[in-house]
C-alpha cells in the first residue's frame, strides 16, 4: 500500500517515461540547470551554450537520419536560414528577437516542407544530395545578394537580452535543447516514430502496411528543418554577427559526426556525444585541423566498428547491469524501468 504524499520513484518514472526521459537523464537535466550557480566563469558558460546548440542541431539531424534514413546534408543551411530570417527581420523591421526566432523556425520549416515535397520521389541518398544542393544554392545566394545580406562581410544583429552576462543565453538555449529533446523523444516513442522507422527501412513494405509515406516523410523533414531554424534564430541573437559561412557544409558535418558518434536513431545519444566532443574540441583550440581529423576518424570508426554509437554502448551497459541485478542491489526500483530505446 502506498501512502498519499509519499515520494514514489516508480510514479515519477511513469511521468518521465511519458516525456521520453529516464530518471538518470532527468537528474542530468537538473544538474545542467544548476550549473550556472556553481560555475560562473563566462568562458565555460559560453562553451556549454554552444555545446547545447550543437546538441540541439545534432538531435534535429538524428530525427531525419536515424528514422527516415535521410541525411539532411543541408542542415547548416536551414540553421543559417533561421539565423538570417531572424536577423534581417530584426534589423530591417525592428522585430523582437524572440519573435524573430519563431520566424526563423517558420522560414526553415517552409523551406523544409518544400524540400520534403520535392524529394518525395527520390531515394535516400539522392534526397540527401538534393538537400545538399539546396544548401549550396542558399549559401551562394546569401553570399551574392549583398544588398540584402551584406554578403560575406556579415550581418550585425541585435542581442537577445540586454545583458553582458552569458547566463540568460545559457538558460534560453537549455530550454530550447530540452524542448527539442522532449519533443523528439515523445514523437519517436509514439506510433509516429514506428512509422518513421518503417519508412526508413523499407518504403514499399511500409506503404503495404498502410503507412502514409508522403505525410510522414514531409512531416519529418519539416520538423527537423524547423528545429534547425529555431536554433539558428537563437544563434543570430547570441553571437551578434552572422556570416554566410555558417551555412557551410562543414557545420553540417559537425552535427552529423556528433549524431553518429552518439548513436543513430536514439536522439539522446546526440546530447551525450555533444557534451563529450564539443568541449574536448574546444580545448584543442587553434588546432582546427586536428579537431576535424578526430571527427573524421571517429565517424569512420563508428561506422566500421560500432554503428550503435555511444547510445548503444550505454544501452549494452544498462542491460548488463540489469541482468546482473545490480540495480536492485543498490536499491533502485526496477519494476517500471525498461531499457532505453
Amino acid at each position: 500500500m502506498e501512502k498519499k504524499g509519499t515520494f514514489d520513484i516508480s510514479r515519477l518514472n511513469g511521468y518521465l517515461g511519458k516525456l521520453g526521459l529516464k530518471p538518470l537523464g532527468f537528474l542530468l537535466i537538473i544538474l545542467l540547470a544548476v550549473i550556472p550557480l556553481i560555475i560562473t566563469d563566462q568562458f565555460w558558460i559560453r562553451l556549454l551554450t554552444s555545446t547545447l546548440m550543437m546538441a540541439a542541431l545534432a538531435m534535429a539531424f538524428d530525427f531525419s537520419a536515424g528514422f527516415i534514413n535521410i541525411n539532411n546534408f543541408g542542415l547548416a543551411a536551414f540553421w543559417g536560414l533561421g539565423a538570417y530570417t531572424s536577423g534581417l527581420l530584426a534589423v530591417n523591421l525592428g522585430l523582437s528577437p524572440w519573435l524573430g526566432m519563431l520566424a526563423g523556425a517558420l522560414a526553415a520549416a517552409v523551406l523544409g516542407f518544400l524540400v520534403g515535397l520535392l524529394t518525395l520521389r527520390l531515394s535516400g541518398i539522392f534526397a540527401s544530395c538534393m538537400t545538399w544542393f539546396v544548401a549550396l544554392a542558399l549559401m551562394a545566394l546569401t553570399t551574392n545578394w549583398v544588398e540584402l545580406t551584406r554578403g560575406s562581410s556579415g550581418l550585425s544583429t541585435p542581442y537577445l537580452v540586454d545583458s553582458l552576462s552569458n547566463i540568460p543565453y545559457y538558460y534560453v538555449m537549455l530550454i530550447i535543447a530540452i524542448g527539442v529533446l522532449i519533443l523528439l523523444r515523445v514523437i519517436t516513442n509514439s506510433h509516429i516514430g514506428m512509422a518513421f522507422k518503417a519508412i526508413g527501412q523499407d518504403k514499399q513494405a511500409a506503404e503495404a502496411s498502410g503507412i502514409n509515406f508522403v505525410k510522414y516523410r514531409i512531416f519529418n523533414m519539416t520538423l527537423s528543418c524547423a528545429l534547425a531554424g529555431l536554433v539558428g534564430g537563437f544563434y543570430a541573437h547570441y553571437t551578434g554577427v552572422i556570416t554566410p559561412t555558417m551555412m557551410h557544409t562543414s557545420n553540417t558535418v559537425e552535427a552529423l559526426a556528433i549524431c553518429y558518434v552518439g548513436g543513430r536513431g536514439s536522439i539522446w545519444g546526440a546530447i551525450l556525444s555533444a557534451f563529450i566532443l564539443v568541449p574536448a574540441m574546444e580545448l584543442m583550440k587553434g588546432m582546427m585541423e586536428v579537431r576535424m581529423i578526430i571527427y573524421g576518424v571517429l565517424l569512420i570508426l563508428v561506422m566500421l566498428v560500432y554503428p550503435a554509437g555511444l547510445a548503444g554502448l550505454c544501452n549494452a551497459l544498462y542491460k548488463f547491469m540489469k541482468d546482473k541485478g545490480l540495480f536492485r542491489k543498490f536499491g533502485f526500483v526496477s519494476k517500471n524501468v525498461t531499457g532505453r530505446s
Binding site: V253, Y295, G296, L299, I300, M303, P307
Partner: peptide
C-alpha cells in the same frame, strides 16, 4: 548510405591532414 558517410569521413581526414 553507410559508404556515403564513410567517404565523408575520409574526405574530412584527407582535407585536414593536408591542411595540417
Amino acid at each position: 548510405m553507410n559508404t556515403f558517410l564513410l567517404t565523408l569521413g575520409i574526405s574530412i581526414v584527407l582535407q585536414n591532414s593536408v591542411k595540417m
